[in-house]
Design a binder for these strands. Sequence first.
DNA 1: CGTCTATTTGAATGTACTCAAAAGCGGTGG
DNA 2: CCACCGCTTTTGAGTACATTCAAATAGACG
Lengths: 195, 195
Amino acid sequence: MNTALILKNVHKHIHLNEDEEKLFISSLEPLTLKKKTVHLKAGEVCKHSTFIIDGALKSFTVDKNGQEHVISFALSDWWIADIYSLITQTPGVLTIEAIADSEVLLLSKEKQQLLYDKVPKFERFFRIITENSLVASQQRLINNLSLTAEERYLDFMEKYRFVMECAPLHSIASYLGITPEFLSKIRRRMAGKLH
Amino acid sequence: MNTALILKNVHKHIHLNEDEEKLFISSLEPLTLKKKTVHLKAGEVCKHSTFIIDGALKSFTVDKNGQEHVISFALSDWWIADIYSLITQTPGVLTIEAIADSEVLLLSKEKQQLLYDKVPKFERFFRIITENSLVASQQRLINNLSLTAEERYLDFMEKYRFVMECAPLHSIASYLGITPEFLSKIRRRMAGKLH
DNA sequence: CGTCTATTTGAATGTACTCAAAAGCGGTGG
DNA sequence: CCACCGCTTTTGAGTACATTCAAATAGACG
């Protein structure tokens, strides 16, 4: 199991001694996901926090018209989960799917709770991770409220270069809150502007 | 200082002994805010988490066209802050303002850090608070992506009955991501449907 | 190479916006 | 008490941004 990346991730915010590291590592389960594999389905209870070693995943909901809405993309060195479902241990509305072949590590809700109890520093770690997610989520809300579709697309391209390469256009459009057709038209417009 | 509500708020998630309660209470500063008072201005560094005993506040950004975008309303028994600025201790983009006469309690960043160090349970408490905020933020994102303006307005009326009574229409429109004129038109349409 | 899916294109439509003006609604002072 | 002021809300006409639907084109993969 390749644990270097996740240990580096944890050490960004808290320091662990050798025993604590061992306990942490022993709480993780490795998993390989092929592109397009569904990792968590809407309606199921989310049992794990998922850390991405390599690859990329997305989470999305499907509305009453059958339309997909991408809530987040997650890349190497990020965590992803249906946090509502994970907290409440009730069925969630998010589906999580690999958009590229991926290597991930799973931390189950129970193991996470044990970590909290045995090594309280992990409360701090996940508090900080959650704070950062909240900031990102609010920033996205601000973008959605104050930018045009084209501006949001430009912003997206900077932040998610890798996603641009492996995600289909309709997923990106869904994340931006527009139709694939319209995103295609934005691209054409922008290509025209380049001279 | 009226501390019953905030102690109840804390006890929802962690248990405190008498000393810990005293330490917590001694970390708080009471403050009274008149309606329309600006509590934190965009460009300033956010120094406190603010707990609302009574009243209501809103946080918002102003975009390059001078348009206001309401990020959150906060009511009695809620916490509010510019979390990005609070975490990084750098100037933030949010303004926080009272929309009704309010009684609040301030917990400074330093006092909060001391609490974390002296009583690690507070890491858990704020982890849980932050998790709940993240869930709410994601839910709002889902609404913005998948509902029409009218549906979002109906949803808003259920969740924020009190805000409906004390916030001006343009703030509500701003929260919903539409213009005040359009919200007014939605209201008329809805009134028409009522028989 | 053929099939399937993803992307592009175009025309018609709709949802929400802009701008300008009118109406409503408190407060305040004569 | 009511007349006037400033601010919020409503209305309407014209417009823009983004959607829908349908069809054409391009790409990916067995």
